[in-house]
Amino acid sequence: MYDIIIVGAGPAGLTAAIYARRASKKVLVLEAKNYGGQIINTLDIENYPVEAHISGFEFATKLYEQAKNLGAEIVFEKVTEIRDNAGAKEIVTPKNTYKAKALILATGSENRKLGLPKEDELIGKGISYCATCDGAFFRKKNVAVVGGGNTALEDALYLSDIAEKVYLIHRRDEFRGEDSTVNQLKAKDNIEFVYNSTVSKLISEDRLNSIEVTNTSGEKRIIELDGLFVAIGRIPENQNFAKLIKLDQAGYVISGENCMTNVEGLFVAGDNRTKEVRQLVTATADGAVAATAAVKYINNIQ
């Protein structure tokens, strides 16, 4: 029996592990993929206090080492189910069932996909969810960005300096992102705005070579391109917990700044909970809050 099990080894989960270990609790962190979460894709973090520049990889690795050196056990298994069994939490993975007095969910979020046939097999063959990661492969080529939020706008701006031409495809006729970025985009001569349109088909031979877009009046158009960057938001990874905890319509765990959920002894930290600002610094802050609350909960039930 562990005192605290943390699901997710991103910034929120690893920070929670640090706080829980410093309170001398027996801690297990379960991670489905890699430690660090999505921050490892960030080339240069410039908005985290103290370090003016640090790569996401270095940040994640330092945090991982810190949690491990403090005595947190970190195991790479995907959690498929959680149960609340007379107060004890049971955490199920394909290999094991673990038990803990308290549980912190810090599973983060993943890229929202278009949901079109062939999308998965074309990842790395023309489809990407990260312009700063893969943009360099599209020098002097034609690319499209799908989405209307800040990420899509910033991706389009970034790619316009690399690619020959950038199509920005958005399902509405105005953008949700910041006006200043929209104005910068409009000043570029190699960006074409494709409004009121969605991508309806991915056309490929061995790799993506064009897309079909359909506008709100039902008109279809084929755009030839080499790369398609999908920036239509993220979805929280809470699907496996929906039976036990309350989620909002978008799938986020309903919680306030105290990181509590509707289940006693079950806490949530980071991007997978309802909140206004999803940033590295708010993820680590959540880790501290959730771990402190979990420690308090354990001390009270004993």
């Binding site: 790395g124 063959k125 990407s128 990661c133 893969d134 360099a136 492969f137 061995d206 790799r207 790369g227």
Partner: peptide
């Protein structure tokens, strides 16, 4: 891939790690 753009183009690499 930065040093070997010929090889990455030949093998159609457009996302890394691959």
């Amino acid at each position: 891939i930065d040093d070997e753009d010929e090889l990455s183009a030949k093998y159609g690499i457009s996302s890394i790690p691959c």
